[in-house]
Computed example of a mutant assay.
Amino acid sequence: MNRLVGKKPEHETIYAQLREQLLFGEFVPGQPLTIHGLAESIGSGVTPIREAIRRLTAEGALVVRENRRVEVPDMTYARLEQIELVRVSVEPVLAMMGAKNNVSGVAAELERLDQEVNHAIEVGDIRKYLEANYRFHFTLYAAADAEVLLRVAESLWLQIGPALRVGCGRFGTANLVDQHHAATVALRVGDFEAVRSAFEEDIRQGMKFVSQTLK
């Protein structure tokens, strides 16, 4: 049997790993990154690291300065306002589209993920909170079957991930609020506008939480 069948290319694996580290806040805003440093920490060659950096830069998750230094972008009020503007324009629509598609099992999965989010908040597990919160949103977004909008949302989450992690680390999880329960109830009864509204409010609350880290 050929063990290489179905195996991802190394550059795809490295990209996925760095993407996850950005999403769940293992890097902080303004943090410089070096190709050789990343290669050493991950245990890979520099070529797949360069390819991953190229892709993440195109998605807005990393920036390359004039001196070719790579870093996680700083979060500013102006940048945060722009991210919020696009998020509230795109993500509630994705949520409503996903709800309307009525994909089997999505409602039950969202309820399960909401319980994971709540448990992570209760015990103060920041990493688990960030992971479960991401999966909650993107489970419904993926059900929308809207690839263009989904890619926009993914890029925005990559950009906000490091700042959200800073907020959780500074203020803890006890102050986190969300509209997940309202969204799942609305989904169960087929109130698609209420799903859209719950996601919009959830996003605005999350962005307000991040803005407190900039003060």
Rank of each mutant, 00 (worst) to 15 (best):
V189S: 08
D145Y: 05
G124H: 00
V123D: 10
Q115C: 05
V90E: 07
R68D: 09
T139E: 02
D114E: 13
Q21A: 04
G105A: 03
V148F: 04
L4E: 13
D114W: 13
A108F: 13
A153K: 07
H180P: 09
V103H: 02
L214K: 11
T184P: 01
T184F: 15
R65V: 08
T213G: 01
E122P: 08
A120G: 11
L110R: 10
E71M: 13
E91G: 12
E40V: 10
D178R: 06
G190A: 04
P92E: 14
Q17I: 11
E131Y: 06
S104P: 05
I160M: 12
R204D: 10
K8I: 05
P48C: 02
I42Y: 01
D178E: 11
V117M: 07
L158V: 03
I35E: 13
S197V: 01
P73W: 08
E20M: 09
S41T: 12
A95E: 03
R165P: 09
L150V: 01
L4Y: 12
L150S: 06
K7H: 13
N2I: 04
V152N: 02
V64F: 04
F24N: 14
E71F: 06
G60H: 01
V189C: 06
E193T: 10
V28G: 03
M75V: 05
T139F: 02
Y15Q: 15
A144I: 00
L187F: 07
G161W: 12
Y129F: 14
V5P: 13
S211V: 02
N133H: 11
V185H: 12
E20N: 05
A52H: 07
I14M: 15
F27W: 03
D145H: 10
Q159L: 01
W157V: 06
L110S: 12
E154A: 07
T57M: 00
V195K: 09
I14Y: 00
Q212P: 12
I126W: 04
P29R: 03
A120K: 03
H36C: 06
E51D: 07
N133I: 02
H36L: 02
G37V: 02
A39I: 13
G172E: 10
E81C: 07
M97I: 12
P92G: 09
